[in-house]
Design a protein around this nucleic acid. Structure first.
Length: 498
RNA sequence: GCACCGAUGGCGAAGUGGCUAACGCGCUGGUCUGCAAAACCAGUAUUCAUGGGUUCAAAUCCCAUUCGGUGCUCCA
């Protein structure tokens, strides 16, 4: 079996219900569209689990030599934004701009790469109008008395093919909520919502109003990726009706297959239960940073469970991830430090090759991040063991560092930006007057500068030299109380923040 | 209520017909150390929600039950 077939990405396709190769068609780059955030509030960890897994996908594709054209929309007009902006006394633009900005900052903190295109819904109104007009020409869009436009599902026999829904059953079940509009059929969904009162609206050939929820993705995907493209991704809840409706609109308008491949990321649980505000287990990224958890640990935890499996997000899990990352970083530093004899230990070379192959094959197998992680930890143990025994050689280290770089190209946790990110989060809390949410001691711990630490470490080294262990231990304990852990090695003292 | 998905050690979790059930964290003991830390070694599920069935062989397939999640309505 060739290495090519091993590293060819196989991804589950919701549309076909099977695992299939994901390959770009008709263009060198893989064209993908992922539903982005509705910027009405700060992003929560459930949102980010989805965006992180899409990030894993795009990073792995690039690593395999497949360039990506990735579009992620920013939904900056919807009922919640209109409602929240009104109660805040702001325009929807001002209101959503703040959360859009915060979202980009969150993405950066979590190491999520920027998609090639990040269009706002409100910047694509003409494209949405054009799409609806195209549907109207085919009598697949129709206007009701209040001026709103609806999609005629009866004209799209394939409706339900993504979510595997039986159309007949759906219509029966949903008849109850068909009492407020004069829609032709209960399931018909809004393409364009006529203006109500003095809310924000756009003057268009369709009449004054604002877009329905689904049309923006159809319009923006078409605008940036064309009528047919390779992959569409999103959270599992979006499969129906959102993605089903996108397919209906797009394929009715163009007559072509919309997206060939569909990826859906499973929801997470928090402490074993569904995350919800009323259950008090609802967390934004910022909530967790202010509690003192590291951004890298949040990323690692959210991507460590493969995207098609439910992840149980717990605080114990965050500690676990923190410790696991520490093990990786400590190992990485040990390899970087060098000092190994020249040459190549064939046993370790074999273990390194096995880890590289295992890592790639695992991710190629429907993005099995858990297995990819395991392949790397196997290498960590083998190499640490050889290093302890004095049998690790410099050429092995070069190879090992190359595998770690590969791993980090997707997992992105080896570089320690955690303290800097937490400082930024605290600065945000200060601006927002939310300092009461910052964990006790967190500010104090971070205020302790590297120079302060180095000075105390030097003093302790002197104390040790004069065999004043009481003083040395006192310094070490003081630092530990401030969250700084010292490690005495053969070649000096290392410290790290906990 | 209907449909679909899931249940693996103290915790997280991989594995979906056949080698001693990965890997991480935790815990216990040991090596190293002035003591720690890091690292390494050993131990830590005779067993995969429960009950039945299929098979030479099941955590993996089938049926039932219990529990959890998602969709059917706004939601990553």
């Amino acid at each position: 079996m060739s290495s090519e077939s091993e590293s060819q990405l196989q991804l589950f396709n919701t549309l076909s219900g099977t695992v299939e190769p994901l390959v770009p068609v008709g263009a060198p780059a893989l064209r993908m569209y992922a539903c982005g955030p509705t910027v009405y509030d700060y992003g929560h960890i459930g949102n980010f689990r989805t965006f992180l897994h899409v990030d894993v996908l795009r990073r792995f594709l690039k690593q395999q030599g497949v360039p990506v054209q990735h579009v992620m929309n920013i939904t900056d007009v919807d009922d919640k934004i209109i409602r929240n902006a009104a109660s805040a006394g702001k325009s929807i633009e001002d209101y959503s701009a703040k959360f859009e900005q915060a979202f980009f900052e969150d993405m950066e903190w979590l190491g999520i790469e920027r998609p090639e295109h990040l269009p706002r819904a409100t910047d694509s109104i003409p494209e949405m109008v054009a799409l609806i007009q195209k549907l109207a020409e085919k009598d697949t869009a129709y206007q009701i008395e209040d001026g709103s436009w609806y999609f005629r599902i009866a004209n799209f026999p394939e409706y339900g093919k993504l979510a595997k829904k039986d159309l007949e059953g759906l219509e029966d079940g949903a008849r109850v909520d068909n009492d407020e509009h004069e829609k032709d059929a209960a399931r018909d969904f809004a393409l364009w919502k006529a203006v109500k009162g003095d809310e924000r609206h756009w003057e268009t050939p369709l009449g004054p109003g604002r877009p329905g929820w689904h049309i923006e993705c159809s319009a923006m995907a078409r605008k940036y990726l064309g009528e047919s493209f390779d992959l569409h991704a999103g959270g599992e809840d979006l499969m129906f009706p959102h993605h089903e409706n996108e397919i209906a609109q797009s394929e009715s308008a163009t007559g072509h297959t919309f997206a060939r491949h569909w990826m859906h990321v499973r929801f997470l649980l928090v402490e074993g239960r569904k995350m919800s505000k009323s259950d008090n287990n609802f967390y934004t990224l910022r909530d967790l940073l202010l509690k003192g958890y590291r951004a890298s640990a949040i990323r690692f935890l959210l991507i460590s469970v493969p995207y098609r499996h439910q992840l149980n997000f717990t605080f114990d899990g965050l500690i676990e991830s923190t410790n696991a990352i520490d093990r990786l970083r400590t190992f990485h530093q040990r390899m970087l430090k060098g000092g190994f004899a020249a040459g190549l230990n064939p046993e370790i070379a074999a273990a390194t090759a096995k880890a590289r192959a295992g890592y790639t094959a695992s991710l190629a197998n429907d993005l099995n991040t858990a297995e990819a992680r395991a392949a790397i930890f196997d290498l960590v143990r083998a190499a640490n063991s050889a290093a302890d025994a004095g049998t690790l050689q410099s050429e092995n280290v070069t190879e090992i560092l190359s595998v770690l770089t590969l791993f980090d190209g997707v997992f992105a946790v080896l570089t320690d930006n955690d303290a800097a990110i937490t400082r930024e989060a605290i600065a945000w809390a200060e601006r927002e007057d939310r300092m009461d949410e910052v964990a006790t001691n967190l500010v104090e711990k971070l205020a302790f500068s590297d120079a302060d630490i180095d000075a105390l470490v030097a003093e302790r080294t002197q104390a040790k030299k004069s065999r004043n262990f009481a003083r040395a231990d006192a310094i070490r304990n003081d630092l530990l109380a401030k969250g700084i852990l010292l490690e005495d090695g053969k070649d000096g003292v290392r410290w790290k923040r906990q």
